[in-house]
């Protein structure tokens, strides 16, 4: 506040309001406010609410009953939970194949021939389609009576295999379907990365006699590090978020063999298996803690880069 002078002077000083004086300090907070509020209410608070909820027994309607860590104790002996956890591990490991596969296709397509742009876009195609449609497409692809897979196997006298009906194969079948769009994503990351590879270094290495695998390993891949980092981040997140494909292709079956944590949580909390919100929240907490390892690693890498500037 400006205090008006006791003695009126004839020189008029335009009042500088509080806002004007603090403009640089206040403006960022004004700009941040709506975004932060939305984010707090829909993302940050719910994370903590879920932590809290996992200590209760609640059907979503009536009174919630405090049960302490009993939900977690139940998890320890829950066979379905164990299956889900193992499947999550399979997803994590096998999904990473998308990274070398994407690199391979990117190397294959990194040429300048007529129509290559169209080829690149068409190879990228699967990523743009919703996972629901990818799921449907692959369900039909695997179908034992008319699926293309078994038709092709039939030519070689093999099959038919009911990929999604076999408890030992089903998860791998779904992961293969998931790898299709994910590989496309990694491919596009590497294609952009390859564009930025320093041609002089490549020429210099060629003069030194490097070629083929050695060139790829010692000269190209180190330069693709930023692309690899992003590919790693999005692939890990994609693997842990897998839900759509499982829900569409097998709905957790056969005999619950394709459940992963994200799907099992949904099943416990919202489907006909009963509205066990607290137990579902406990599963979600476990999933979150696994993800937290990776989030911490990502943030740490980003932080190092920020300080490096």
């Amino acid at each position: 506040m400006t205090v008006s002078p006791a003695v009126p002077t004839d020189r008029y000083v335009p009042p500088r309001g509080w806002y004007k004086r603090n403009e640089i300090r206040v403006t960022p907070w004004l700009f941040l406010a709506p975004g932060i509020l939305f984010f707090l209410f829909y993302v940050i608070f719910p994370v903590f609410q879920s932590f809290n909820l996992s200590l209760y027994k609640w059907d979503g309607l009536g009174e919630a009953e405090y049960v302490g860590l009993r939900n977690y104790q139940e998890l320890a002996t829950d066979r379905a939970f164990e299956t889900s956890l193992w499947n999550n591990l399979k997803w994590l490991l096998l999904y990473l194949l998308a990274i070398p596969a994407g690199l391979f296709i990117a190397l294959f397509l990194n040429q300048t021939v007529t129509g290559i742009r169209l080829y690149k876009s068409l190879f990228f195609f699967p990523f743009v389609i919703s996972q629901v449609v990818v799921g449907l497409v692959f369900t039909w692809f695997y179908d034992p009576t008319f699926g293309l897979l078994n038709t092709i196997l039939g030519w070689f006298g093999a099959g038919p295999i009911a990929v999604l009906g076999d408890p030992t194969l089903a998860t791998y079948g779904i992961i293969a379907a998931g790898l299709w769009p994910q590989t496309a994503y990694c491919m596009i990351l590497y294609l952009t990365g390859l564009n930025a590879v320093d041609p002089e270094q490549v020429e210099a290495a060629r003069l030194d006699g490097a070629k083929g695998w050695r060139m790829l390993w010692y000269v190209i891949i180190p330069q693709l590090k930023p692309a690899t980092f992003i590919a790693f981040v999005v692939t890990i997140i994609g693997a842990l978020r897998s839900f759509d494909l499982i829900s569409i292709m097998t709905n957790g079956g056969p005999f619950g063999s394709t459940r992963v944590l994200s799907f099992y949580m949904f099943e416990k909390a919202l489907s006909e298996y009963g509205f066990r919100m607290g137990y579902g929240a406990a599963i979600a907490v476990v999933l979150f803690l696994i993800m937290l390892l990776f989030i911490a690693y990502f943030l740490w890498s980003m932080w190092r880069e920020e300080r490096g500037r």
Binding site: Y42, V233, L261, F266, G280, A284, V285, M291, F294, I295
Partner: peptide, 10 residues
């Protein structure tokens, strides 16, 4: 990066 499921019920 958070998994959706932890937000679901709240």
């Amino acid at each position: 990066f958070v998994p959706f499921q932890i937000l679901m019920v709240p």
